[in-house]
Design a protein around this nucleic acid. Structure first.
Lengths: 340, 340
DNA sequence: GGGAATGTGTAGAACGTTCTACGGCATGGC
DNA sequence: GCCATGCCGTAGAACGTTCTACACATTCCC
């Protein structure tokens, strides 16, 4: 009695029915009378029965969805998580997060581990792996990819995807700055890596170039890294030039903070001497002391959409869906008209 | 061949041995000859066999450890995660994170879910639940609790715990400020909740009181909340007083940022008119623009310690261990001698 | 040379579910 | 009254491991 957990067999004995019947009731499957339903539910409550996920996994579902996080420090990842869990709150599904690390190797290890644990579906956030690897995973389990812009169109049938429209986000920033009167607008991006194709920073940089071109302006992209230090170094280099830019658009808020520091040290006041904009709208961007103009991705919507698509996929949809979430520009104190 | 995953039986067939033998090799159990070891390992590699966690769970271990996160926005939680995963990198264990939410109810749901999935052990980060609930969980599975100061001594036998020495951290701050010449030092803490006993903010406030008393100074604690807004409101109230404090020690960095904003708005310069110190040493505290004096908890060590204790526990230790990690004070630009 | 001890391997029963068959019982149409 | 047709319930075989027995060789010791 006290030893071991209560199983479906215990419930069946208590209710005076077969284990198969209990299983049906638990799963809400077809073919149970109201009377049976009542008897079994009562027995379940009395005994405090909880289904054993591992045993379920051997035949059916685990009702477990995995979210692989590429980088736990990603500032809007809590928003995405909240979106996912919020959407799934009233379902039977449970969400577990897998810290995949930044390395392709460790990410692969994590996805393997999630498949080994027979999760019903996976959400991969900014996965760093080849399209072939992605396709292999999607062949084993339903997958939704977040934050990775469509790779080779062909493979896209295997999984769904949710992205922020980074091209639009970049355009919003450029339009805003041009509207204020800026013409020399530089962009700081993340140093290109081998598998970076389709990753947000690449797309943002491309969106920036397109938007500048649309305004008939020359683009000016500098690749450092999406860190405070990276933003600082990049800005220092840009500000040392003869015809220094009057505005810097950093591809990530954390880099924008570094840009602000560089402006401080160069004795430039923001936004009079230099306008600064970021991307991601991280929490501290809204602090009065920082007040950074930034692009907001609404991670909440992204997460909720990913969860919805994944459940649809698990429950049978085979046609693949690519959803794009529109970002919004949050104008704050670090951008303004250039000094004449 | 293409259908379904490769099982232990496939490996056994290929190697020409029994499934039991393969199982032994996989688990590194006693009673395998070198020859058998070689044959089986080769077959495993050739077939790309991976053990099925759910099937394992039914009899043995799952090699899965769960980390329940009370709040995914907690700024040093990535450090803890990294400490945990770093420590476990070269073991067979996999770490999965469970977003438990802030509510006791959702946290309980998450721990139940983790137990249902037969995880081998659980690390609970700042769990909000009664000692009885905690004991119940610890009775079902090995548990290490992080960030919760020892409750009723008796129940402590059931699980291990790792805490930051918050009393010491608070003392470091007070000693530092007193050393600079401050005497009117106020403390902003988080509003008390029912189950908050033993939670960090309570202990920090108590440590502050002790330290002030040790210096023969009057304490001054104001409870708002650990948010930017909470810090702002608290500071505004404190700074409106006749004999306003010359230093404010906020129990969390995020609140300290609010204090800085309040100082800005009141036209007070930091640290000349007001010294400000925080707790947690979150990433942005080190940004030159903020440069906040803070207490560093070394989440990395905390996480690694928790992981070590959990594995020890799983592998047999029954005596319970309470580990305390010493914080360090990081002095930056927001603290200085008071203006005479 | 006859146990005892030791080392290697295997058979087969768990573990707690799900799911495919199928059986029994009403109902209803003819 | 007989056969199809639903509906409800059950038996029992999976699912992929682990683990307890036990069988079979060796080796060792007296």
């Amino acid at each position: 009695m006290t030893s071991g957990r209560v199983t479906i067999a215990d419930v069946a004995r208590r209710a005076g029915v077969s284990t198969a019947a209990v299983s049906k009731v638990v799963r809400g499957a077809y073919g149970v009378s109201a009377e049976m339903q009542a008897k079994v539910t009562q027995a379940i409550d009395e005994l405090g029965y909880r289904p054993h996920a591992a045993a379920r996994a051997l035949r059916g579902r685990t009702y477990t969805l995995g979210v692989m996080l590429s980088d736990t420090r990603n500032p809007f990842f809590p928003d995405i998580i909240e979106g996912v869990t919020g959407r799934l709150r009233d379902t039977e599904y449970q969400v577990l997060l897998g810290p995949g690390g930044i390395e392709p190797r460790t990410q692969a290890r994590m996805t393997d581990a999630m498949i080994d644990r027979s999760m019903d579906g996976l959400i991969l956030i900014s996965p760093v792996m080849t399209d072939a690897e992605l396709a292999a995973i999607a062949a084993a389990v339903p997958v939704v990819v977040v934050g990775r812009h469509g790779g080779a169109g062909a493979s896209s049938a295997a999984y769904d995807s949710v992205v922020d429209d980074d091209v639009m986000g970049a355009r919003l920033v450029v339009d805003h700055l041009v509207g204020l009167g800026h013409t020399r607008i530089a962009h700081i991006t993340h140093l290109e890596r081998a598998r970076a194709q389709g990753l947000p920073h690449t797309v943002r940089a491309e969106g920036y170039r397109q938007a500048m071109r649309a305004h008939g302006l020359a683009d000016d992209v500098l690749a450092t890294s999406f860190t405070e230090e990276g933003g600082f170094e990049g800005a220092r280099e840009l500000l040392a030039r003869d015809d220094r830019p009057t505005a810097i658009f950093a591809g990530a808020d954390i880099a924008a903070l570094g840009v602000l520091r560089a402006a401080d040290e160069a004795g430039l006041s923001v936004p009079e001497d230099l306008s600064v904009a970021g991307y991601d709208n991280i929490g501290i961007a809204s602090l009065k002391r920082i007040s950074l103009t930034s692009v907001d991705q609404d991670g909440h919507v992204i997460g909720a959409t990913a969860a919805r698509l994944l459940v649809e996929r698990i429950e049978g949809r085979s046609r693949s869906v690519a959803s794009s979430v529109s970002p919004t520009l949050i104008v704050r104190g670090t951008t303004g008209p250039p000094r004449l």
